[in-house]
Design a protein around this nucleic acid. Structure first.
Length: 577
DNA sequence: ATAGCCTTGACT
DNA sequence: AGTCAAGGCTAT
């Protein structure tokens, strides 16, 4: 393969970005610039367009605009589009860490595509029906990000020429965005925090919109509300004992439905569009006996490549109005009804990102444990409403939560990373904290293994082999895992068996071990066990004293310390076919 | 297969 | 009418 021979250079135009060129305002100006050498004017950077002043975060070439969620060059745009549309699979012949820059970007498409994803390009932005033109659903967010970048550049080179707070980053939305605020910017902590808040808000809104099936950019999916936290000084038992009316957690459905009668309700009266519910990842198509209602694929598609069975989560239509009704279709299989009910109670998939956005700690371990405490509170609050779990007696709930919380934490963070929702963080003092550390609760020696699992999960997500239904199944499967083998409660064992069986049936697998995501589950479970060992060690050296809730979660339940199980739950056993 | 340029079309 | 991020075309 030729390396540079076929490399195209724009004829006549500058092939590399010049920091002294004139300041075009929009794409039209960029295009003009390619044809005509612009006059060399030295305007203040304040007026410079973000497009002009940025390099492609994937390969470092000149940015041509926003493409699939990120400011990138034209070639990476095309590469990303081809890869997603044609469902290309690449393999890296080296160690999956090849350099990707303008001169060698053609050498390893595998690493290039992974870098595209890692930097924040979204496969969801590639249209399934290939409809041309029009505005996509992120338009208003591109606009705001652009304004934020303008603001940032205006303040970056201030009177003192000093750097601005916040880290530089590549993603159009997730790292370098600054609030499009009026007025001056100081380097005070307050302003920094406010910027982080605005940045997080932008991220959240963007992700929520990104995941919606409708594409109207005039709709605001939902107002951003900073969630309040349960004080972490409460013990596990105290939190579990709280009235469920005190819960502060966001659910996919805020209205609680009675088991097994929500479907009729939805069929006759669909719920209001809740963007968190309608994320493509939420599609339960794999677990339904009927195929999902296809979004009336428009004519005019199918130009050469096979579009019959898209493997990647692409947008259906720019102005898509259809809802994945299959999600609400009634199934005759009781186990799949069970699985559908469980999905209804899953937490908002953005909760990891929301939690990590507000941690303000100087020390790395403080940051990690503080975030873990927040997520743990979410988990406990969620368990108040989790079907069947809430029926368990207190000691049983505590035991199951203690057995599963490290797994659920690990899985939630890993999924968020694999889906490019959560990125590396940093402490208030600027110390970088890798997402691996956050996922592993600080047990950094597992980072290599974690990275393998995360990549495996990412590939499964891209292949649509792992969606929200699988995540639901894994969460409940872990929660109802009688970790120490002490439980004699038939509801616990029956529930786990039902989840495993329903999961396998939904995937058309002969058993749960044949499900593509099962290997990921097993690997995560192993890591979670090692994480717990790591935390026991921390606890022994008194390092967890400030984190009472986490300490409570590390108490080992002994069978003698709990009351005997009473079989009052048999009548409530979940159906087992 | 790549990447530069062109066309499209919802939104402003 | 202009913008601009989608997809398409095509020389390399």
């Amino acid at each position: 393969m030729e390396e540079r021979g076929s490399e195209k250079e724009s004829g006549g135009g500058p092939s590399t970005f010049s920091t002294t060129s004139s300041p075009p305002v929009g794409m039209a100006d960029i295009k003009m610039e390619m044809g005509h050498a612009p006059p060399q004017m030295h305007l203040a950077p304040v007026h410079r367009s973000p497009v002009e002043s940025e390099l492609c975060p994937v390969c470092g070439d000149k940015v041509s605009g926003y493409h699939y969620g990120l400011l990138t060059c034209e070639s990476c745009k095309g590469f990303f589009k081809r890869t997603v549309q044609n469902k290309k699979k690449y393999d890296c012949s080296a160690d999956k860490n090849c350099t990707v820059d303008k001169t060698c970007r053609k050498r390893c498409p595998s690493c290039r595509f992974n870098k595209c994803l890692a930097q924040g390009m979204k496969v969801e932005a590639v249209r399934e029906d290939r409809m041309r033109g029009g505005r996509n659903k992120f338009g208003s967010y591109y606009k705001r990000d652009r304004a934020a970048r303008m603001q940032k550049m205006a303040t970056r080179v201030g009177p003192n020429g000093g750097p601005l707070v916040g880290s530089s980053a590549n993603s159009a939305f997730f790292s370098s965005s600054q609030p499009p605020m009026d007025g001056h910017v100081t380097s005070s902590t307050h302003d920094a925090m406010q910027m982080q808040y605005m940045e997080a808000k932008l991220k959240t809104e963007y992700n929520q919109l990104l995941q919606s099936p409708t594409l109207s950019s005039t709709q605001n999916p939902q107002g951003f509300v900073r969630q309040t936290y349960i004080p972490n000084c409460d013990s596990l038992a105290a939190i579990l004992g709280q009235s469920i009316d005190n819960h502060n957690f966001t659910y996919q459905h805020q209205v609680k439905h009675e088991p097994f009668d929500y479907q009729d309700q939805y069929i006759s009266q669909p719920p209001l569009p809740d963007y968190a519910t309608y994320t493509p990842q939420m599609s339960y198509a794999h677990m339904l006996p009927v195929p999902p209602l296809s979004s009336s694929s428009s004519a005019g598609s199918g130009n050469g490549s096979n579009r019959s069975s898209p493997q990647l989560p692409m947008c259906t239509q720019p102005t898509e109005k259809s809802i994945d009704n299959a999600f609400y279709a009634k199934s005759s299989a009781p186990l799949q009804n069970l699985m559908m009910e469980l999905v209804q109670y899953m937490p908002n998939p953005n909760h990891v990102q929301n939690r990590l956005s507000y941690i303000d700690r100087m020390d790395k371990m403080e940051f990690i444990l503080s975030g873990a405490t927040d997520l743990l509170n979410d988990l406990i609050s969620w368990s108040h409403h989790a079907p069947y779990f809430l029926k368990l007696p207190m000691f049983e709930k505590m035991s199951l939560l203690r057995g599963s919380w490290t797994f659920i934490h690990l899985m939630d963070v890993t999924v968020a990373v694999a889906r490019n929702i959560v990125y590396d963080q940093q402490t208030r003092s600027g110390t970088p904290i890798s997402v691996a550390s956050i996922a592993l609760l600080g047990c950094d020696k597992l980072q290599g293994a974690w990275n393998n699992v995360m990549q495996q999960m990412r590939l499964l997500i891209i292949d649509q082999q792992l969606n929200h239904a699988d995540i639901t199944a894994m969460r409940y499967c872990a929660l109802f895992d009688d970790h120490h083998g002490y439980s004699t409660n038939p509801l616990v064992h029956g529930m786990r068996n039902s989840v495993l069986q329903g999961w396998a049936e939904g995937k058309g697998a002969v058993d749960h071990a044949s499900i593509p995501a099962w290997d990921v589950y097993v690997a995560l479970m192993q890591l979670a066990g090692q994480m717990k060992e790591f935390l026991y060690e921390k606890q022994r050296s008194s390092e967890l004293l400030p984190y009472q809730l986490i300490s409570d979660m590390l108490i080992i339940d002994l069978p003698t310390s709990r009351p005997p199980a009473i079989n009052i739950y048999e009548s409530e056993l979940v159906p087992v076919t």
